[in-house]
Design a protein around this nucleic acid. Structure first.
Lengths: 229, 229
DNA sequence: ACCTGAACACCGTTCAAGT
DNA sequence: ACCTGAACACCGTTCAAGT
């Protein structure tokens, strides 16, 4: 009655959805979105295309699974706090760091926001709003605004990763763009020109947090009653 | 010495980048992102693939051009106001309406945020911050937060368009998702469950504006000085 | 039940050749 | 200078056939 597993004969290299997802993440991390093809995957797993399709419906499902993996891991790393603002900041930074490490996940998330991964972020953030003093009727808008902001960042990060060739110096890249900004026409792009210096020196993570804090400040402010007085 | 144009012999059907971009927008609007292929384009323009490559470097450039067209048109429709908050709201809504009418543009924009279209939005919004009383050193963070939020929305809208089959009833779709939300596990998704009703009834445009106002409130609030007192 | 791998339909892009 | 359209390399997906 002893199963194969009990006899220790389990093949550790057997194909499974987990192993496929894991390998896909390795390819995505190493060589980016464009490198994940079924051919690359079959070669790496030394199998045929049909074998992968036995475990996974199609490429979209595979990408969704990789993204969920990465986000789920990020969410479990969030330390719990009583302070709701700190908690939301911690969630935001965990997601930010996940996008920083896996920019392809940002691309996937901003393209398919109905994924479980997004719902998890939505739930985690929403759960803090009560403690923040946000009235029930405003909680949906507030949580959506926060998630939209985070997804916006996700897309930008993914785009950055596509643009900055792997191995290229980030600050050199920013300096190049800043120099472009400085050369724009003063009449039509005065603000962009003025911001060039700040673009060159800014820190993405700090800037993300600054924006998150702006939203949090707005959310925690008492709503304007434009009815009486 | 009279040119062809002066003699009125200009062929109105001559190929040009403008005509290619225009046709691409027609295809994208009618049948979505997936429908824009070089084959569909050559058929519609009754020409060869090489002819298109003569005017346009590649598909990415073509998509960037279509998006810029759509956003540029949206930006010119923005009515000018003295009130900086109203002005930023008007910009946001113009962009929102553009994504509503052309969801594929949202997809493109959130994937390639270094495009001229984004810079135009960034400039238009940034130009209002001085009047809003935002200090110079905070303007970069504030403008970036607003643009990130708008790009986040862009991605979500594009995703929605991909998900909701053309011709499907939007409110029926939302009702389906809301019903799913109501059936989630109470222990792990209490917030999501509580929000199901609001999801069913919400208005995207109003919700977008609500989030924008949260950001604006945060931006207009005097910054916390955590040094003295 | 799970895997193999050739075959299919389709894609963006190139390029020798035409006008 | 501008256009034609066959050809190329590559993609996701299918499926008859194997174990």
């Amino acid at each position: 009655m002893a199963s194969k597993a009990e006899r220790g004969e389990r093949r550790t290299d057997a194909l499974s959805k987990e192993r496929i997802v894991e390998t896909a993440i390795e390819i995505l991390d190493a060589d980016g979105e464009g490198a994940l093809t079924f051919r690359a995957l079959t070669e790496r797993l030394s199998t045929g295309a049909g074998a992968i399709y036995w475990h996974v419906a199609n490429k979209n499902e595979l990408l969704a699974a990789t993204t969920n993996d990465v986000i789920a891991r990020a969410m479990t790393s969030v330390v719990h706090t009583k302070d709701p603002k700190k908690a939301i900041r911690a969630i935001g930074l965990a997601v930010f760091d996940a996008f920083d490490a896996h920019p392809w996940a940002g691309s996937q998330l901003s393209r398919e926001p109905w994924q479980p991964a997004v719902l998890r972020i939505f739930e985690a953030i929403g759960g803090q709003l009560e403690a923040l003093g946000v009235p029930q009727r405003s909680q949906f808008d507030s949580a959506t605004a926060l998630v939209t902001y985070i997804l916006g960042l996700a897309g930008q990060y993914a785009a950055g990763a596509r643009l900055i060739a792997p191995g290229t110096d980030r600050s050199a890249f920013l300096a190049d763009v800043a120099t472009e900004w400085e050369q724009f026409d003063e009449a039509t792009y005065p603000f962009v020109r003025r911001m060039a210096g700040q673009l060159r020196d800014h820190d993405d993570r700090a800037q993300f947090l600054a924006g998150l804090d702006l939203l949090l400040t707005g959310i925690a402010s008492p709503p304007k009653t434009n009815t009486t007085t």
